[in-house]
């Protein structure tokens, strides 16, 4: 049972040539580039489009502004969804909540004026969010099921009360403020987007509420044992998500000068894709709003580039799907 060192060079000799390789991988690991994959990916995709589509006006300021404009509503919805997913829940109802809010706002404006319209839109978010939140936090029904049900209900109500007809908004002030006009030289939509992203970033990263959301998503039991009221936190994120979605619906209404049940339909999937692309953990516990912003910009960027490249809608869907899967796969945390 002797433990004589085996034949061949001792460990000190063999380790010498490995040091270089190891410190390089160590350095790469130290950078934790996976966390920043969305930013790297954004730059790479942007460069590729800039080079290949430069002659088709990809880099024109007008087109760049377009990319932002198209990303705006999704980004705003995705800010709310970032909180929900960071908390290890999901909200599938955001798209149809936006649609319902657009409809209610439009109808209230034509009957009682602009203030009533804004209140009606927000009320949609509050009511739906409170229902979602109560069912998830008090009755412990999985948010996936609750919001899947709510997705259908909100869309159904919006279609029902309007008889499937678009509800025009003739109030110019409303349309101007909610996404239709410009604030100075800047399109109003971008201001709204910047406002929500900034607020979301600060709240998630810099407030007690945000920290408690992440803690609840990371380990609900440990958070509860640490004095976090995790039920209340879950209720609050569901509420927040729906209210933010209702604001997005009001922006649809302002930009398109009407309320319609289709506005926002399908946005839940784009928003979730943006959140996950942005590096928020699908299992909760980690999330960033800035990442989410770049996630939705990335989706918008890809859409825009593929259109300029002349791909058909069907082809766009395939390429977009592939890019999203690739980005998420690269950014997967070990």
């Amino acid at each position: 049972m002797s433990t004589t060192t085996g034949p061949g060079p001792g460990p000190t000799e063999t380790s010498a040539p490995e040091v270089g390789a190891r410190s390089l991988t160590g350095l790469l690991r130290g950078l934790d580039w996976r966390r920043y994959i969305i930013y790297i990916g954004f730059v790479v995709v942007f460069m590729v489009f800039a080079v290949t589509l430069g002659d088709r006006g990809f880099v024109s300021s007008n087109n760049l502004l377009n990319i932002f404009r198209q990303a705006a509503t999704i980004s705003i919805i995705a800010v709310g969804v970032t909180f929900v997913i960071s908390c290890a829940e999901i909200d599938l109802s955001v798209g149809s909540v936006a649609g319902l809010a657009s409809v209610c706002t439009a109808m209230a404006i034509s009957n009682w004026g602009i203030v009533a319209g804004i209140l009606a839109g927000l009320a949609v978010g509050v009511v739906v969010g409170a229902i979602n939140g109560t069912l998830v936090s008090m009755l412990n029904i999985p948010s996936f099921l609750v919001t899947l049900g709510m997705l259908g209900m909100a869309a159904g109500v919006a279609q029902w009360i309007t008889g499937s007809a678009p509800q025009p908004i003739l109030d110019d002030t409303y349309n101007l403020i909610f996404g239709g006009g410009n604030f100075g030289p800047v399109p109003g939509l971008l201001v709204w987007m910047a406002l929500f992203v900034a607020l979301g970033t600060v709240v998630l990263a810099k407030t007690r509420f945000g920290r408690q959301v992440l803690a609840t998503g990371g380990n609900r039991i440990a958070a509860e044992f640490s004095g976090v009221r995790t039920r209340r936190i879950k209720f609050q994120v569901m509420l927040l998500s729906a209210v933010v979605a209702s604001v997005a619906g009001m922006l649809y209404a302002g930009r398109l000068e009407s309320g319609r049940f289709q506005w926002g339909a399908g946005d839940e999937l784009s928003a979730i894709a943006a959140v996950i692309l942005g590096g928020t953990s699908l299992f909760g516990g980690y999330g960033t709003v800035i990442g989410t912003l770049f996630g939705s910009l990335m989706i918008s960027l890809i859409n825009n580039g593929l259109i300029l490249a002349g791909l058909e809608t069907s082809q766009q869907q395939v390429v977009r799907g592939a890019i999203i899967i690739l980005a998420v796969a690269l950014g997967r945390r070990k």
């Binding site: 600060v202 810099k206 407030t207 007690r208 920290r211 408690q212 992440l214 803690a215 990371g218 380990n219 039991i221 440990a222 958070a223 044992f225 640490s226 004095g227 976090v228 516990g285 980690y286």
Partner: peptide
């Protein structure tokens, strides 16, 4: 299971019950 959020940092775990003391206005 009950004491720690394993994927969060040591600092975040230590300060979780103390968030109230890290406030400056509404922010942490």
């Amino acid at each position: 299971a009950q004491g720690l959020i394993l994927d969060h940092s040591v600092r975040e775990n230590l300060t979780l019950p103390l968030l109230g003391r890290m406030r400056r206005g509404p922010l942490l």
